[in-house]
């Protein structure tokens, strides 16, 4: 009995290892869309612009738009997409391995300056320009943002004529905010709402992070306000309206390209053009195409560039 076991096991293991290797390779190629073993060591030289992206589908689409626009202009681009979260990729940008990265203004500023107290888009951008380390710079910020904000149903917005958070003061029926428990104690919760806008709101916990239950609760009228990302496909799918945050209750999070010195002025001008031509509605539309039509980032980026030639 015992002798036959060692003979059997390796075969099983080999099969398992092969299966894992295949699955792993498939997963890697599916994620990065490029050669996963090319670490981008040739990045940083003058010829190739290495573009990275977060492990977030929406961010990857923006990075892909950058990449295709630069390729169109004759640059050689190396895509290093789906790298992970900020803690994982920012050191790579800081040491020059990655040259260009679509970022978000507020969270990026908080990475370098955790104590910052500014929330409004322009103030955040101004402070961000000063916080960027040597050898890096932020290009123009885009009007497109992807951030937390108060969201209401189209119906509710029409009923009370709401476009900005401050308009909620006109609403005479009780307002209840639904969101993750953390929202109750965060600066943008009921207490912050009272402090910044002087508007009293109640709170109900819904722990699905602005997911389908939150949207359903909005539609049912169980809650009137929800904290949902401004670029979430749910905004378009659910007929929701994002209220403009004129007083800076939420940290601004506009799309802003982070670039190394390897991105020359001509390339920077192309990226600035993309940023200027993209607004939050575009971002939502891109995200909806990704989520609903399940198209790859390359196709979505190509179509957007065709409609918005640089």
């Amino acid at each position: 009995m015992k002798r036959s076991l060692p003979g059997q096991r390796p075969r099983k293991r080999r099969a398992l290892a092969a299966a894992l290797a295949v699955a792993g390779t498939a997963a890697l190629t599916a994620c990065s869309g490029g050669d996963p073993f090319d670490s981008g060591s040739d990045g940083g030289d003058g010829d190739t612009i290495v573009i990275g992206s977060q492990d977030y589908y929406s961010n990857e689409i923006i990075a892909e738009i950058y990449a295709q626009a630069l390729e169109e202009a004759g640059y050689t681009v190396d895509r290093q997409f789906r790298i992970g979260q900020r803690e994982a990729y920012l050191p790579e940008i800081e040491d020059g391995t990655i040259d260009l990265f679509p970022e978000y203004s507020g969270p990026l500023l908080q990475y370098w300056n955790a104590e910052t107290s500014v929330n409004l888009p322009d103030e955040v951008y101004a402070e961000l320009e000063g916080a960027v380390p040597d050898g890096l710079r932020v290009l123009d910020q885009s009007p497109a943002n992807d951030q937390d904000s108060y969201t209401v149903t189209q119906e509710f917005a029409d009923e009370w004529g709401l476009t900005a958070i401050g308009d909620l003061a006109e609403v005479t029926t009780p307002l209840v905010l639904g969101g993750n428990s953390e929202a109750e104690t965060r600066a943008y919760g009921p207490a912050g709402m009272m402090e910044t806008y002087g508007i009293e709101i109640g709170f109900t916990p819904i722990e699905d992070g602005g997911g389908p239950l939150t949207v359903q609760a909005l539609e049912d009228g169980d809650i009137q306000l929800a904290v949902i990302y401004t670029a979430s496909p749910a905004i378009a799918q659910g007929g929701l309206v994002t209220l403009e945050d004129t007083e800076g209750l939420f940290l601004a999070s506009n799309v802003v390209p982070l670039a190394s010195d390897n991105v020359d002025d001509e390339a920077a001008a192309i990226i600035d053009g993309i940023s200027a031509g993209m607004d939050t509605e575009d971002l939502i539309a891109l995200n909806v195409r990704s989520v609903e039509e399940e198209l790859p980032a390359a196709t979505i980026a190509e179509d957007w560039l065709a409609e918005n030639p640089q």
Binding site: N180, S181, E182, E184, T185, R186, F203, T204, P205, I206, E207, D208, L213, A217
Partner: peptide, 19 residues
């Protein structure tokens, strides 16, 4: 129950987890 209502001991878990 605390996932979608302000109810029960689960509130401590969700509130603690997210903050």
């Amino acid at each position: 129950a605390a996932y979608i209502a302000d109810y029960g001991l689960g509130r401590y878990l969700f509130a603690g987890l997210k903050s």
